[in-house]
Design a protein around this nucleic acid. Structure first.
Lengths: 134, 134
DNA sequence: ATGCATCCTGTAGTGACTACAGAAGCAAGG
DNA sequence: CCTTGCTTCTGTAGTCACTACAGGATGCAT
């Protein structure tokens, strides 16, 4: 019985033990073989799938998108076009988020600059939040 | 008994009925007076506090920060300096997020550009996710 | 045997909501 | 008055992606 236990897989991949078990529960990861004592033993395939999932999360993909990508990555399954659709949609989301955050940044930065440290009720940050103040 | 019911407050402020009740439950909003039938009746003060909360959420502040800002906004409570601290810290968070998202954007955009629509296993998006592919 | 580390399953919590279910309230119309 | 249709109530549970136990079992070294 060759393979590694869950703790070692966790250290190897940087994914939390509990998260690994969570991924198994939601069927992102196939249940691995067990020892006679009931402990999970992970081989290279499982290790690789987990690394794939982690990388996808790092890139900000949701779990369902990653699930789809995993399915698409199987042998002879689909063209790169399907993968591209998922990734492009995600890229659009990221761009929208960046634009929104840039707006927030500008608004907040401007408001904080005006914050002279004077006593309330002279406070531009509170002013921007409060409909009656502004 | 002057005031508006929760449905009208929801339409007025754009905050979900259930979210309004949630805010009351977690004590962001004070429980308003009720009709004899038990229905909530909101006045101008509650309306204003809810609008404050919503604006804060729009600006990306967490509820606990908004709670603190609400407390600071009270009469003679604190200087604008405390408010500034909260807002500045939030601005730092936003800037970090923007930087992270920009990294993601660049990486994904580059990878998708390479995606020619050819058949798997020729797929740069999957390549970037998969340790053995790359 | 003992002690410590690792692992197991099941349950519940996080943050900020969101969505019912089943019952009650309310106003308009017949 | 009754009926109808809409609004509101409380309580419970779910969303997403985890995270944190509790209590017990396993495994290894001394």
């Amino acid at each position: 019985m060759d393979g590694i236990p869950i703790g070692e897989l966790s250290r190897l991949t940087g994914v939390n033990i509990e998260t690994i078990r969570y991924y198994e529960k939601i069927k992102m990861l196939q249940p691995p073989p067990r020892t006679e004592g009931g402990r999970r033993i992970y081989g290279p395939t499982e290790t690789r799938v987990l690394a794939f999932i982690r990388r996808g999360r790092e890139l900000g993909f949701g779990l369902e998108d990653i699930r789809a990508l995993l399915a698409l990555g199987g042998p002879g399954k689909a063209s790169c076009e399907d993968v591209r659709k998922i990734a492009s949609h995600h890229l659009d989301d990221i761009r929208t988020k960046i634009a929104d955050l840039r707006k927030l940044e500008r608004l907040l930065a401007k408001t904080i600059t005006q914050c002279s440290g004077s006593r309330v009720p002279d406070c531009p940050v509170l002013d921007i939040l409060d409909v009656r103040r502004s």
